[in-house]
C-alpha cells in the first residue's frame, strides 16, 4: 500500500471513530491503533489476574463463611474479567501464549497497586472500597471505547464490579463500628492504601505520554487528573461515614472549586514500584509463574485426554 493510500485510510478511520462508530477486529486499522490496544487491553487483563493474588491470600483466613464466599466470588470474578479481556486482546492477532509470555517475562506491565502486601483482614475491605472504587472510575468510560470487543468486555466487567466495592466497604463499616482494635485496623488499612489508590489513576496529565492519542481513540475519555479528582471527591464523604480519617493533612474542601484540594503525591514511590522495586513485585511474579508452571502437566493431560477421546470417536465411525 502506498503512503498516500494509508493516509487516506487513516483519515477515514479517524472519522469513523469521531462519528462514534465501533471498530471491529477484522476492520482495517492503523498499526499503532492495534499495538496500543494490545498493550492497554493486555495490561488490563494482567492486572485482573495478578489482582487475584493479594486477595487470594485471605480466602482461607476470612473471619466468617459470609465473608469467605463473598471474597471467593470476587476473586473468581477477577479471573473471569481477565479471561474476557484476554479474549478481546486475542482478536487483535496475538495469542494467549504470547500474552502470558509477556507477563511472565516482565515485558508487560500490570497495575502497580498489586505490588503492595495485604497484611491484615482490613486490607480486604480497603482494596474493595478504594482499589475497586478507583478501578470503576477508570473503567466506566471504557464501556464506550472505540474498539468493539474491548467495549463489550468492559460492559460486563463494570456490571460485576459494583458488588466488589460494596463488599469491601461493608468490611470497612463493620470494622469501623467494632472494637477499638478493629477500628484501628481499618484506619491502618486506609492509611496504607490511600496513596497507592490515588496513584492507580495514573501519572499527572503533564507526565502522561499516551493521553492525547488515547483520547482521540476513546481509550480514555477523561484525563488522569480529572479521574483522580472524581475519585477523591466521591471517596472522602464515604470515609466520613466510616468515621475514619484520610491520611492527608492537606486535604481540604475548596468551596470555590466545589471539590477537594489534596496533598502532593509521592511520584518517586510510584515510579519505583512501576520499575519493579515495590514491596511485592518479585513475590507476585513468582506466585504467578509458579502457578503456570505447576499447572502445565494438568493442561497437557487435558489435551491428551481430548485427543484420545477424539481418536476413539473417529474409530467408531469407521
Amino acid at each position: 500500500m502506498s503512503e498516500e493510500q494509508i493516509k487516506y485510510l487513516e483519515k477515514q478511520f479517524e472519522e469513523r471513530i469521531a462519528r462514534d462508530e465501533k471498530i471491529e477486529p477484522k476492520d482495517w486499522m492503523p498499526e499503532k491503533y492495534r499495538k496500543t490496544h494490545i498493550r492497554q487491553i493486555s495490561q488490563h487483563a494482567h492486572s485482573e489476574v495478578v489482582g487475584m493474588l493479594p486477595e487470594g491470600n485471605w480466602i482461607t483466613r476470612a473471619p466468617s463463611l459470609r465473608r469467605k464466599v463473598a471474597l471467593l466470588a470476587k476473586v473468581q470474578d477477577e479471573a473471569g474479567h481477565g479471561l474476557y479481556l484476554y479474549s478481546a486482546c486475542e482478536t487483535l492477532g496475538i495469542s494467549r501464549d504470547e500474552l502470558y509470555e509477556q507477563l511472565h517475562s516482565g515485558k508487560a506491565k500490570y497495575s502497580s497497586i498489586f505490588n503492595y502486601p495485604t497484611i491484615t483482614w482490613a486490607d480486604m475491605g480497603a482494596i474493595g472500597w478504594l482499589v475497586d472504587g478507583a478501578a470503576i472510575i477508570n473503567q466506566v468510560p471504557l464501556c464506550n471505547t472505540s474498539f468493539g470487543p474491548y467495549a463489550r468486555a468492559m460492559v460486563r466487567v463494570c456490571k460485576e464490579e459494583s458488588f466488589h466495592q460494596r463488599q469491601g466497604y461493608e468490611i470497612m463499616l463493620k470494622l469501623s463500628n467494632g472494637t477499638p482494635e478493629q477500628k484501628d485496623m481499618a484506619q491502618d488499612a486506609l492509611n496504607r492504601w490511600w496513596w497507592p489508590s490515588l496513584m492507580m489513576l495514573g501519572p499527572t496529565d503533564a507526565e502522561s505520554v499516551h493521553t492525547e492519542q488515547s483520547m482521540k481513540w476513546k481509550l480514555k475519555r477523561k484525563s488522569n487528573d480529572d479521574l483522580r479528582q472524581q475519585f477523591i471527591d466521591q471517596t472522602v464523604p464515604q470515609a466520613d461515614i466510616l468515621g475514619l480519617s484520610i491520611p492527608d493533612p492537606d486535604l481540604k474542601w475548596n468551596e470555590e472549586k466545589g471539590s477537594y484540594d489534596f496533598g502532593e503525591i509521592d511520584w518517586d514511590e510510584f515510579w519505583q514500584v512501576v520499575k519493579g522495586h515495590g514491596p511485592m513485585n518479585k513475590e507476585r511474579m513468582k506466585a504467578r509463574v509458579g502457578a503456570w508452571e505447576r499447572g502445565e502437566w494438568v493442561r497437557d493431560a487435558a489435551m491428551a485426554y481430548a485427543e484420545k477421546q477424539q481418536e476413539r470417536k473417529e474409530k467408531q465411525v469407521v
Binding site: E24, P25, K26, M29, R34, S87, A88, E90, T91, L92, G93, S95, R96, D97, G148, P149, R299, D300, A302, M303, A304
Partner: peptide, 27 residues
C-alpha cells in the same frame, strides 16, 4: 474470538502451532 479475528491466515497458523505445543484450542 476467531470469528472476530483480524486475520484468518494468521489465526490458522496460531491454531496449528497450538496443536503442536498442546495449547488448548479456542471456542
Amino acid at each position: 474470538m476467531i470469528l472476530e479475528s483480524t486475520n484468518n491466515n494468521q489465526q490458522s497458523t496460531i491454531n496449528n502451532n497450538m496443536s503442536k505445543t498442546k495449547n488448548w484450542p479456542l471456542w
